[in-house]
Amino acid sequence: MDRVSITQDLSFSRLVYGMWRLGDDADTSPEHVRDKIAACLDQGITTMDQADIYGDYGAEELLGRALTPELRDRIEIVTKCDIIAPIGRHAGTPVKHYDTSRAHILASVEHSLRLMHTDRIDLLLIHRPDPLMDHEETGAALDEVVKSGKVRAVGVSNFRPWDWSLLQSAMATPLATNQIELSLTATAPFSNGDLAFHQQAALPVMAWSPLGGGTLMGDAGALGARLDAIAADRGVDRAAVAVAFLLRHPAKILPVMGTNSLDRIKRISDALDVNLARTEWFQLYEAALGAEVP
């Protein structure tokens, strides 16, 4: 599987396994989690996407219970911080909010390291833009965790270009990536400047919910019909075509694929076998927009 450079000494698999719903599975045993990781590794998928808030702040621990030293050395771990919601260990907070203070970032790193039984986070992302972010404080904290060796690279999630530029202006460490919602049901970044901003800087973009939260799999309209037609022609399913749509773009998009089904995990890499023609890409884009391009 192709790999994408995140920093000079860190690369990710082009497809990423997302662990958002890891705790929703009927079987959350270490053995079953290891089976999922093994199914990823068999395809060359080495990058695992986490966040402190996933699974009501429990998904990181589920991963940590499954990791052995040997397995840890075969994968890259992405995690995120700054969302505080009244669930799990933050059940007592009076309101969902964001915290990008130095104290919270440092505490979050320590907590994630402990839960995942590891001595390093490969990529730490600020999960959501914080209206109260002091970019000087946040930037210095991110520089600090990289300098400490506890975090190899840092980036953001759901940031617009101006949010990115503000934070980067206060940092010595280059931000490595932005993880944004991007799919055939979330096409705005293709035209609103989000992708262009990162593409111009040769910075990879991670795409969360590349299947539209599963809605693409049940679409009964023109988009679903177009996905089915291409899928039938290539001998794959809709998911592979929808992910191939993102891979076709030159902005080095890394789709984050989240599923608890071992069978579906084993077929994530089918998308790599789907080479969309330019006209096929635009047929999907037109169906997603509900109108032809201007």
Rank of each mutant, 00 (worst) to 15 (best):
V95N: 12
D99H: 07
V78G: 03
G193F: 00
E144W: 11
V154D: 01
P129H: 01
V109M: 07
L123I: 14
T79F: 08
P161V: 03
E137Q: 11
G149N: 00
A153T: 12
A85Q: 15
S148F: 08
D143S: 15
E76C: 15
R120G: 04
Y98P: 09
P131A: 01
P69T: 05
I121R: 02
D82I: 04
H127D: 01
A188S: 13
Q168G: 04
A186F: 14
E70W: 05
L124C: 00
I83H: 04
T100Q: 05
V156C: 08
S101D: 07
K150R: 09
R120W: 06
R152L: 06
V146W: 06
D82C: 13
D163T: 11
I105P: 01
V109W: 01
L184D: 05
E137A: 06
S108Q: 04
V146T: 08
Q200H: 04
A103V: 04
F197I: 00
I180Y: 02
S112Q: 07
S148L: 12
W162E: 11
P69I: 03
D119K: 11
A91I: 04
D73Y: 11
T79G: 10
T173L: 09
G193P: 04
A91V: 09
G88H: 08
A103P: 02
E181A: 11
P86T: 06
E144A: 11
S169K: 14
T177Y: 09
L132V: 07
A196P: 11
Y98L: 13
S183I: 13
P69F: 08
E76D: 15
E110N: 12
V78I: 15
Q200L: 00
V95M: 06
P131C: 03
L71W: 14
T187V: 10
T177N: 13
R74P: 08
A196W: 01
E70T: 13
P86D: 07
R72W: 15
K150S: 02
V154G: 03
T185P: 00
V78N: 04
L71R: 09
T93R: 15
H117R: 14
P174E: 08
R72M: 12
Q179W: 02
L115P: 08
V154Y: 01
W162A: 12
H111E: 06
